[in-house]
Computed example of a mutant assay.
Amino acid sequence: MRERKSGFSPSGIVCREDLRFHTRSTPYRQILDVPEYHFDDILKEDRVLDIGANVGAFCLRAARLSRHVTAIEPVTADLLAENIGLNHADIKVIAGALGTGAPAEITWDECRVVSPTYSLKEITEIAGGCDFLKCDAEGAEWLIRPRDLEGIRRIEMELHVPPISPPPNPALLDYIGERYTFSIDRSPVYSLLGVMGILHAVLK
């Protein structure tokens, strides 16, 4: 599912909901649709974080619901910024990754970059807060300090497992289990890809 194209335009590929994306030959996948995430309940004043934004499939849709969207992306940030401009969206971009604060080598398909990393607390501070968190960080989600989730009303997060990530962090899962009502969508294909599933969580 990672690429869904419904038409072509001189100003980019036109996708579902009339979003437009510049595309070019790249060594990485350009994700144009994210139906696995639930976000119809984003509120106009929500401060939304899209960690692992790729080329904008989630944050562009979120920006139609909220006026405060920040996208974090270490590999495809230039193309992400082009797509934000193409759609005349008001989205802040952080060229970096979720992590410990130390530079890290980030791999996405056949592309490798050395990227600055930021803790979730640091990203939240740069963005001016977070009410709604979408996170697809290829395993870096297990580096989130549980207390950094404090105050976040909604979480949509892809949870990864080895070999593409470190083992799950029980403290993070315990924190979410205690404070959120949640479900995890699983599919047989996920286990083959090193993905536990998609977490949908609402603060109790």
Rank of each mutant, 00 (worst) to 15 (best):
I51Q: 09
N54R: 02
I176K: 00
H160F: 03
R64Y: 02
D131K: 10
I198W: 00
T107N: 05
I106V: 14
V55R: 06
E110I: 04
L65F: 15
P188R: 01
H38I: 11
A104M: 06
R61Q: 11
E73V: 07
P74W: 07
G194P: 02
L192C: 14
G56L: 11
S11F: 06
T26D: 07
A127Q: 13
L193S: 00
I94A: 04
I51H: 10
G177N: 04
R186Y: 08
V34L: 08
L120E: 12
L86K: 07
I84Q: 08
K134A: 04
R179S: 05
V48N: 03
I31W: 03
C111M: 12
F21D: 12
L159Y: 00
L193M: 06
Q30T: 07
F58T: 01
S115F: 09
Q30D: 02
A57W: 00
T181P: 05
L32G: 15
L159T: 01
F8K: 11
T107D: 04
A137G: 11
C59I: 13
H160E: 06
W108A: 13
V195M: 03
C111S: 11
L19S: 03
E150V: 02
P116F: 08
R153L: 12
D174Q: 15
E105N: 03
E3K: 11
E125P: 06
Y180T: 07
R2H: 11
G194W: 00
P163D: 11
I164E: 09
P146L: 04
F8I: 09
I42T: 10
P170G: 11
A137E: 01
D90I: 13
I72K: 05
I91V: 14
V161S: 03
G99K: 02
I91E: 06
D136Q: 04
R24D: 10
S6D: 13
T124M: 04
C15M: 07
P35I: 01
P103R: 14
P116G: 09
V114K: 10
H88V: 14
V161F: 00
D174I: 11
E138R: 04
V189C: 03
E156S: 13
I94P: 13
L172F: 01
G96C: 05
S115R: 04
